[in-house]
């Protein structure tokens, strides 16, 4: 998957590049409006991640040129503005998703994967890990062709872990992924824990292997 990150903040660009390169993405970075325009005009990307506040222009205005270049390219807006009008405008211009800063890279990763599956792979792709198969279209999990029934939240959790495997994922990040905006209302992460333990048990029962490890104080790591 080829991704262009348009981000003027060097640390954030470095973080995204650092993480997504290890995820097997082909990453490129542009830190200015003009640099980004040039890259968009000359190369094709599967996904463009665009920050709205750029030093020499609004990232919003880059969206139409990406759309004009290729319909297949997924567009993800990254904005410091948690603003509904901005979000609506971006989506109207042709963006596919909108993530507000401060964000978790794992969350961005999950969204990019979802976007990639939806736009480039047209949802036909199946996700495989060890002897498990996830079918994103029907939102089901199979182990050796046997369906394992998951609740909606367990499914979301599993996908989040698979996409971010081998990474320590913090509880707030999980909560935000599963509960969205409601995560702000959680005063502790007991609810996260309950779903996690259920998922862990189900995976363990099917395969006899413990995929989800607790990392003391930090969160959880999924490894196959």
């Amino acid at each position: 998957m080829k991704v262009l990150f348009i981000e003027d903040e060097p640390v954030l660009a470095d973080e995204m590049l650092g993480y997504f390169s290890t995820q097997g993405y082909l990453c490129e970075v542009a830190s200015t409006f003009s640099g980004a325009s040039e890259k968009i005009a000359n190369y094709a990307y599967d996904i463009v991640v665009v920050d709205i506040g750029l030093p020499d222009g609004s990232g919003m205005q880059l969206i139409p040129s990406v759309v004009a270049q290729s319909n297949e390219t997924g567009i993800m807006i990254l904005s410091a503005k948690h603003s509904l009008p901005d979000k609506l405008e971006g989506l109207k211009l042709g963006a596919d998703d909108y993530v507000t800063k401060p964000f978790y890279v794992e969350e961005l990763n999950a969204r990019l994967h979802a976007l990639y599956r939806r736009k480039t792979l047209k949802g036909t792709h199946q996700i495989v890990f060890d002897s498990f198969v996830v079918d994103p279209q029907s939102k089901t999990l199979f182990h050796k062709n046997k369906e394992i029934s998951l609740t909606k939240k367990e499914y979301q959790l599993l996908l989040y872990f698979i996409v971010n495997k081998e990474r320590v994922v913090s509880k707030p990040s999980i909560a935000e992924h599963v509960w969205g905006d409601y995560a702000d209302q959680l005063d502790n992460f007991d609810a996260v824990y309950v779903h996690l333990m259920n998922l862990r048990k189900k995976l363990n029962k099917a395969s006899g292997k413990d995929y989800i490890k607790t990392v003391y104080g930090m969160g959880y790591r999924f490894s196959s």
Binding site: E9, V11, A80, K81, K101, E106
Partner: peptide, 18 residues
């Protein structure tokens, strides 16, 4: 708004330290 970017940076770095 100005705080959002530094918060993002701190969060990203803390997650990396994790």
């Amino acid at each position: 708004h100005e705080l959002q970017t530094p918060i993002s940076i701190i969060r990203a770095r803390l997650e990396s330290i994790s």
